[in-house]
């Protein structure tokens, strides 16, 4: 198949093109089509390694569509689309709240097709924001720190553990720096919304000189290096993918509740190539029918049955509620409280 020679055609342009944008990009990759006719411009928060299998599979089905794939952090992505109005066709992000805000503020195009209609109601909003993955936030425990079966499985147990054995875990707990990570902020606000335990946990972590991270990858790296014993609110799909090459840690799905982040896609109102963007939406919306891609990317597809079998799993609801935590005053207050708790000042 052509799939084998496609990677050879991939040009990754690192840093070189970042000057073209007023926002900061992490990486930009071009995937020329076998018979290029049109180009689909995607801005995304998903790493190339994660998303490449999906893009290639898409191109295999649509051999005339070249793809320009730009990777940025959730915050920079928001800046690019919302503030600067960059002309991307598709916006893919793990920050559901920001995606919701984009749709609410009129930056998304409405689209309906049999594939999007087949999505469950909780996996779409306004026929503009479509979820195509469901990724839980998990607790990561290093295997060296927790060699046996005695490990916490709920927030209560974690708080108790941190309070009882402060010396064992001082400096060895990590979590997102919610000031810089959109995903971290989303998870923290959802935690705070669901349970008061969150603030108690944060205080317990604050007393132990908790390390703050920008991304799941770094946290997992430090767990493996032995610098961390516990990492809280790590993106489960990353952890699962990295566990396979290397391991050294345990993934714990909290039994009291586990927030499920939905990775979403929307068509920008600035899109030039609407037809191809719609083709991609249909492709992503039917990801569940491609277990090979789910395995290759490590992104679990939207699946109502999986959620029903475990009552602790709570998909974060798309909708105007998510705008509440994006409110600048609310965010300022939340971050102030968060800082006060985590830094123990």
């Amino acid at each position: 198949m052509r799939l084998t020679d496609l990677p050879a055609a991939i040009m990754a342009i690192l840093g070189l093109t970042s000057a073209a944008f007023a926002f900061e990009i992490e990486e930009r990759a071009r995937y020329p089509a076998a018979n290029p006719e049109t180009e689909l411009r995607i801005i995304s928060t998903a790493d190339r390694a994660v998303f490449e299998p999906i893009l290639l599979a898409f191109q295999q089905q649509n051999q005339t569509i070249s793809i320009d794939y730009t990777i940025a952090s959730t915050t920079e992505l928001m800046k690019a689309v919302h503030a600067e109005g960059e002309a991307f066709d598709l916006v893919i992000s793990s920050a559901m709240d920001l995606q919701t805000k984009l749709a609410n503020d009129g930056f998304a195009r409405t689209y309906r097709s049999p594939a999007t209609d087949a999505l469950p109601d909780w996996a779409k909003w306004r026929d503009q924001v479509f979820a195509f993955t469901q990724e839980p936030a998990v607790l990561i425990l290093s295997e060296t720190a927790f060699p046996d079966e005695a490990y916490p499985t709920s927030r209560d147990e974690l708080i108790e553990l941190l309070r009882d054995q402060p010396d064992r875990f001082r400096g060895k707990v990590g979590t997102y720096d919610v000031r810089t990570s959109g995903f971290g902020y989303l998870m923290a606000t959802q935690d705070a919304r669901v349970s008061e335990n969150f603030w108690r946990l944060l205080e317990a972590m604050g007393r132990l000189d908790t390390q703050l991270y920008c991304c799941s990858g770094d946290m997992l790296h430090d767990i493996r290096e032995g610098k961390l014993a516990i990492a809280y609110n790590v993106l489960g799909s990353y952890a699962q993918a990295q566990l396979e090459d290397g391991g050294g840690y345990r993934i714990v799905m909290m039994s009291d509740f586990a927030n499920i982040m939905l990775r979403t896609v929307l068509i920008s109102t600035k899109a030039d190539n609407i037809a191809d963007a719609q083709t991609m939406i249909n492709f992503l919306a039917s990801l569940e029918s491609r277990p090979d891609l789910v395995a290759a990317s490590g992104l679990p597809a939207v699946d109502t049955d999986a959620l029903q079998s475990n009552v602790a799993l709570r998909p974060i609801r798309l909708g105007p509620g998510l705008l509440a935590f994006l409110d600048r005053l609310t965010r300022r207050n939340f971050l102030r409280n968060w800082e006060a708790s985590i830094t123990q000042e």
Partner: peptide, 14 residues
């Protein structure tokens, strides 16, 4: 004067 926008205040509209 400050405010924590209640999640429910906006979610109820959806």
């Amino acid at each position: 004067i400050t405010l924590d926008l209640p999640y429910s205040a906006l979610s109820m509209l959806g």
